[in-house]
Structures are given as C-alpha cells and as structure tokens.
Write a protein that binds this DNA or RNA. Structure first.
Lengths: 229, 229
DNA sequence: GGGATTCTATGACAATTGTCAGGTTTGGGG
DNA sequence: CCCCAAACCTGACAATTGTCATAGAATCCC
C-alpha cells in the first residue's frame, strides 16, 4: 500500500541516502506513515522520542516555550527534513515541539533503525553529522540576526526567507501562510508589534495582503531594509 | 618535548577519546602546539581551516560580526573543547571568529587526521555527532533566551553562567573576567546598556566589583531575576 | 446561516533599549 | 612615576518595542 523507502524520492534530500540497501529495507519495514493535521503536534517539548520523523509533505514549526509563556520558533522544517534526530542521537528528551503549520504526511522511523545504522555505517553517520553541522551554522546565524537586527529588519528577512524557501502561489502570495502570531514567534517579538510592522510595510508598498496571506511586492527594498538602510 | 596526545587528560573531555591507539598516535605526530595571547585570534570568520584546535588551557570567545559592525559572542570555549570542527566537517569556511579572552595553549590538529578517522571509525564520528547535537541544543536555548528575555535578565543569567562554568577566584570574583564590551556582546546589547545594568546590580547589592572584576553577592536574587521576578 | 470564537488591527501609553556626548578611571609602557 | 590610550561610567534624549484595551474581520462549527 504505502511506497517503500527504497523508492522514495524524498530520501535524496536527507541523510537516509547514505544508507545501504539492506538498511533501507529494514527502515522501510519498520516505518509507519502518519498524517498530521494543521495545528496538531508531531511531538512536544520534553517528550522522549522513540524514533525520528521524515517529512514527506507539509511544513512543521519547531518551537520552544520560554519562561514568559511565549513560543519561540527556531526552525521551519519541510519536505525531506528529518525531525527528532538530535534528540535520538543525544539520547535526551527533545528540547523542541514540532507542530504542523500545514497538513503533513510523515514517516515515523523507530530509533533502533537509526541507532543501529549509526553504529555500523560511518557514511551514514558522517552524512547526519554534516546535516547537523549545517543546522548549527544556521542556528548561529539566527542568534546574530535576532540580537543585532531590529524587529523591522527581522520581519523583512522572514518574508524573504519564506519566499526563497517555500515559494509563492499563482497569485503572488507566499506559499506558506503563517498566522501573525507565528510570524511574531519566528522573529521573537510581540504579536501586536508584528501586526503593526506588517501594516507599515503594506502602506509603504513593500508587500500586499489578503486576509492572512502576504505577498512580496518590492523585494529589493525589503532586502535593503534587512541590510540596514 | 611536548606531551603526547595518548597521555593528554584533556582528551577525556572531548570526542578524541573515541579514537583508537593508532589514530591517536597519528594525531599526536601531526599536531602542533601553539600559544595564543589574550586578544589574539585562533582564526577569523571566513577563514578556511586546515584543521581543528583542541583547547588545553585558557578561554576563547566564538563570535560573528553582524551587519551593524557589532560582534555577537555565540559561545565561550574552554579546556577540552575542540574548535573548528563544524567548519572542517562541513568543508566550508568558518562562520565564526575565535579570539582568546585569556592566554591560551592549544593543539592544532590537521584536518586529514580528523577526516580520515571520521570515515573509518564510526565510534569517533558518533562521538563528534553527540557533541554537535549538544551544541545545537545549546544554540536553541540561546535563541530563546535572547529573544524572550530582557537585557537585565540576560546579564543576570550570563553572570550565573560564568560562575557555573568558570568558577570564582579566592576573593569571590568570577574567574573569567570579561570586558564590559564582551559582556554586552554575549547578551547582545549596547555596551552602555550593559554598564548601566551592572551599576544597577551593584547598587542593589546583587554583585560587587573591583575594576573590571565582578563577583556575585546574591545568587538567589539573580536567579529569581532570570526567572522573571 | 448565525453565533461564538479566534485572529487581525489600531490607539494610547509605558517601559526598555540605543545613541550621542561628555567625563573619569584604569592599566600598561616608556 | 607619569603619560596616554583604552576602558569604564553617566546623563540626556530619542527610538524602539511591549502592554493593555478595544473594536472589527474572518472563520469555524453546529
């Protein structure tokens, strides 16, 4: 019924491509395909994960609750990404929640398949390591951005990021529609501040909106704003 | 003349402990011990690293320059930590600068020793992976802290962090003395703001100072402040 | 299709933080 | 020991951002 990992194209984008045929077969036999509706969690902060989730479709936000009760979104994960790896590797409960911002289709892969392969296949381990190195670099960039740029700059940057990573629909709106609250949680500000700045951008002709959908109108100016003009 | 890696205690604290005897021997034969004076760089943002640095002594700040000309300190690395790993593994130029905040003694290990071992010894790769998973988690925490806490809270937290990680001297001052500018670059704020808050903490009896040295007087209140009271 | 609920929007205000412009202190080198 | 540069400190002010209150718009569900 469900397709086999061996034939899954998604695999090309993540570390599973470094698995051998037999390893993939084992993964395929033990995996469980799940459907997650928008707003539902894949897992929540503090959970002990018994495996990882390979995203086949849809988008998930990875967030962490702060002491003052606000979520900070640390990353948006899409097709091809593997979630929960960090937790399984470090053998710790997860430090992030993963919640679908669009309907998702994911494959749950029990951790045994992963840890076994980690111990036996250096290529796979190295591949996972490379991905994590990349994630770490991105996290460093986020730290610098969030602490050194103004809210306005960060929101402009977020829109450009959304366009570059998730594209636009046929009407020129960002394909990934986030609530204003999610936007504010990405850039780390109050929801009202985010809304205010979105209104300002709209007045200035940088973006256009329709309901909660947002479209980029003047990419150049947004880029200049990110750079600090 | 210099001690051999095989006998180095430092190794116990990092991923090198997962190397085999022969691998260690190779590392030991190819390593170069260097002395770095306070203020001098180990490497700078954008450099292509030909190896990694194993810290034997002293402390280094890892920072990234932002568009507005300010450094953001992302991590303070001390005895036992291996610097430059991320860059060597991802085969990218480094995204961070490493500058000594105290005189340092480090061992430079050419990247061949590392990459060879990564390809052959899954235990080593896994060990490196675990360390990187840990770093990634810490980076996530930094993101949440920096975006959801006030400058005051972050400075309080920084002092507690310095105490817990680097200890105090015989007079009760933090063993790691950072300049006010470095402190402001750790928490991501303007130097003047940091100074002002340090003065305030002093007036309130939370800390005491002598020159640029800072000592913690009321740890409990600092902790409460971090939690948001 | 209507009512409840959630999301978006805006104003008014306060608090936080940054900037500029000075002084003062400190510490290292001659 | 003294001088100079760097680091530290403070005040005044402006800009940014958060908070609270309120109202309209959209959406969901029965």
């Amino acid at each position: 019924m469900e397709s086999r990992c061996e034939n899954c194209i998604i695999r090309q984008f993540n570390s599973l491509r470094a698995m051998s045929k037999e390893e993939l077969k084992h993964v395929s036999d033990s995996k469980i395909t799940k459907t997650i509706k928008k707003g539902e969690p894949l897992f929540e902060e503090g959970d002990k994960l018994n495996g990882v989730y390979c995203v086949r479709n849809g988008i998930s936000k990875l967030s962490k609750l702060s002491a003052n009760g606000k979520d900070q979104i640390v990353k948006l994960a899409t097709k091809g990404e593997v979630l929960g790896q960090r937790s399984v590797i470090a053998e710790e409960s997860t430090n992030l929640s993963a919640i679908a911002v669009q309907d998702m289709e994911v494959c749950f892969i029990p951790k045994e398949s992963i840890t076994n392969t980690l111990q036996k296949n250096p290529n796979f381990t190295l591949e996972v390591l490379r991905h994590m190195a990349h994630d770490l670099k991105e996290a460093d960039d986020v730290i610098v951005n969030i602490s050194q740029k103004t809210v306005k700059q960060r929101i402009a940057e977020a829109f450009l990021y959304l366009k570059n990573n998730f594209g636009e629909d046929e009407d020129g709106f960002l394909a990934l529609t986030l609530s204003r609250e999610d936007i504010s949680n990405v850039v780390g500000t109050a929801t009202e501040s985010a809304i205010r700045i979105i209104s300002e951008f709209k007045k200035k002709g940088l973006i256009h909106t329709s309901g909660k959908k947002i479209g980029i109108k003047d990419e150049r100016k947004l880029m200049e704003m990110v750079e600090g003009f």
